[in-house]
């Protein structure tokens, strides 16, 4: 493998019915780094991740994974989609679901080898899922299901793990657990992470880099480089302030401009 970036998104544009959702977006993800893809609902996070996976046709630009242009990245990318609705009645145990991450693409009906079964056990341990390994995957809680999806995505040993809003439907405690688990597992497996979220604060402790998406455009770099009033104001096209409070970051639009759309992260939580 080269020592270039794992993912290179190069001047990518995507339009739906003539409306540009992604407009000349460029950024890179480096090997073994944790990158947060931050933006409010509807800015195009899912569209961007699906483009990287080759599930969404891009109109302009190029996407390279490990230096190779987009064709079939399937084997080197792990993916945790935004919504996986699993029915509690489906008789597939968490363990089976993780194992599918290993061989779902394989045709034929071969038994899994001892090594493969051990790998599944190891993976279940890595994500702290042994406790519910034999429960039907559809009847797990949101946080438990995320662990299983992460294990499913990681077991094929991808070089990049894409997660689409994995924290969206979790309670604060589970958010913290899943974030620290991802951080640890990604380091252990030497896999780069690109994780989308509409809120960045829970990711601040683990993010190496941030890709901030708004109005179809992106700014990327370290959090200190990107989450600044001047950078984000340019991106939003109007003035925003960045407040830092007790180690948390808030992006706030000027209150006087009442017709200005207030960015979603501006909701102040009082704890």
């Amino acid at each position: 493998m080269s020592n270039g970036p794992v993912l290179d998104v190069d001047h990518v544009s995507v339009a739906f019915a003539g409306r540009e959702v992604l407009d000349d977006v460029s950024f890179q993800v480096q090997a073994s780094e944790f990158t947060g893809l931050i933006g409010s609902n509807g800015v195009g996070k899912t569209t961007l991740l699906r483009s990287v996976l080759g599930l969404q046709r891009i109109d302009r630009g190029e996407i390279r994974v490990n230096g190779a242009p987009l064709s079939r990245h399937a084997r080197v990318l792990g993916y945790v989609p935004q919504k996986v609705s699993l029915d509690p009645d489906v008789p597939v145990r968490a363990r089976d679901f993780v194992a599918l991450g290993l061989d779902a693409h394989r045709f034929g009906f071969s038994r899994r080898t001892k090594d493969e079964r051990q790998l599944v056990e190891q993976m279940l341990m890595d994500v702290d899922a042994e406790r519910f390994a034999d429960t039907r995957v559809g009847s797990l809680s949101g946080g438990e299901q995320q662990r299983i999806l992460i294990a499913h995505a990681l077991i094929s040993q991808p070089s990049l793990l894409l997660l689409d809003e994995p924290l969206a439907n979790l309670d604060p405690k589970s958010v913290e657990e899943v974030v620290s688990l991802l951080h640890r597992v990604a380091k252990d497996h030497g896999v780069a992470v690109l994780l989308s979220a509409h809120e960045m604060n829970s990711l601040l402790p683990v993010m190496d880099r941030i890709v901030y998406l708004t109005n179809g455009r992106a700014a990327s770099g370290t959090t200190d480089e990107v989450v600044r009033s001047d950078v984000l104001s340019t991106l939003y096209g109007h003035h925003v302030d960045v407040l830092k409070l007790h180690g948390r970051v808030f992006v706030v639009a000027q209150p006087s401009e009442s017709d200005v759309e207030i960015p979603e992260h501006s909701t102040l939580t009082i704890e």
Binding site: L53, L55, R72, A74, R75, L77, Y79, P81, V84, L86, V90, V92, F97, L100, A104, H105, H152
Partner: peptide, 14 residues
């Protein structure tokens, strides 16, 4: 089986 559980996951696996 994977397509039945999640078409997205299956498609992402190629």
């Amino acid at each position: 089986l994977l397509s039945s559980l999640s078409a997205d996951l299956a498609a992402a696996r190629g």
